[in-house]
């Protein structure tokens, strides 16, 4: 599982010459008087792994959640695979099925078994047969290393196991892109790596990913790009090596000095 330390793919190459999958244009959002997203624009190409990093409260979660419209935006456009996010209803649900999401607090369905957590979407949303859905779910649970827990309830699993199940649940929908919002922040330190390993594997398999994380190891190992956010703006958009070794803005330098001392 543990990959070599060669970056995947060579930084910059993934973005180059590929088709855009997520296009964000001039997006603004306010919470009351607070301007949380300030004219955000960026493009994420198919197969690209983008790490979003920045101080707490800078709008990373809001940005991430806006990408599948768990948060509404005031103005601007967000295109997923060429289609604008519908406002509400079935169109939005359909589009969300193509955008996986992994939450900091896992959010596994508490009343379902691990296996049911992974099959529910494929059966009810994708209309797969229960047998097909189960077969695929077991493959995915195998892949994230929790197949032997399939019949347990979420509360019986450790945080690291739950988060890997959450990743399997997202993958079961065959999403075009997966959003992960601080997927390891709620985990005990000894469980962080088991989740990061799965994420690195996913990145190497070519999944398009937007990952809000402060895990520099993951960013260096798996990311094509790092977006540095502060106060609702994207201040830097660069390769991991560029960003961590040679940050341009004072905000980024300051931020990095803080996370490095921890």
């Amino acid at each position: 599982m543990e990959p070599s330390h060669t970056a995947h793919p060579a930084p910059g190459t993934a973005a180059a010459g590929r088709e855009p999958l997520v296009v964000v244009k001039n997006v603004n959002k306010h919470y009351g008087d607070l301007h949380v997203l300030k004219n955000i624009s960026t493009t994420i190409n198919r197969g690209e792994v983008v790490v979003v990093i920045g101080p707490s409260g800078s709008g990373k979660s809001t940005f991430c959640r806006a990408l599948n419209r768990l948060e509404t935006i005031d103005d601007g456009t967000i295109l997923i695979d060429g289609k604008e996010l519908p406002k509400e209803g079935r169109g939005l649900a359909k589009l969300r099925a193509d955008v996986g999401m992994v939450f900091q607090s896992f959010n596994l369905f508490a009343h379902k078994t691990i296996l049911e957590n992974v099959t529910l979407g494929p059966i009810k949303v994708r209309k797969q047969s229960p047998a097909d859905a189960k077969k695929r779910a077991m493959d995915l649970l195998q892949r994230v290393g929790v197949a032997n827990q399939a019949n347990k309830s979420p509360a019986q699993l450790s945080g690291g196991q739950q988060q890997r199940v959450a990743i399997a649940r997202a993958l079961a929908m065959d999403p075009k892109v997966i959003l992960l919002d601080e997927p390891t922040s709620a985990l005990d330190p000894e469980m962080i790596n088991e989740v990061l390993d799965v994420m690195v594997q996913l990145a190497h398999d070519g999944m398009t990913m937007v990952v809000v994380t402060h895990e520099m190891g993951f960013a260096r190992k798996a990311a094509d790009r790092v977006l540095f956010m502060a106060d609702g703006e994207i201040l830097e958009d660069s390769t991991p090596a560029e960003f961590f070794d040679n940050p341009k803005s004072e905000r980024a330098k300051d931020f990095l000095s803080k996370i490095l001392t921890h």
């Binding site: 969300r96 099925a97 193509d98 996986g100 999401m101 369905f109 009810k124 949303v125 649940r169 997202a170």
Partner: peptide, 16 residues
Amino acid sequence: VGQAEAARSIGMTFGQ
């Protein structure tokens, strides 16, 4: 609220 968000994020409709 995370339960509903997880459901919506795998494409479930409001009714589902």
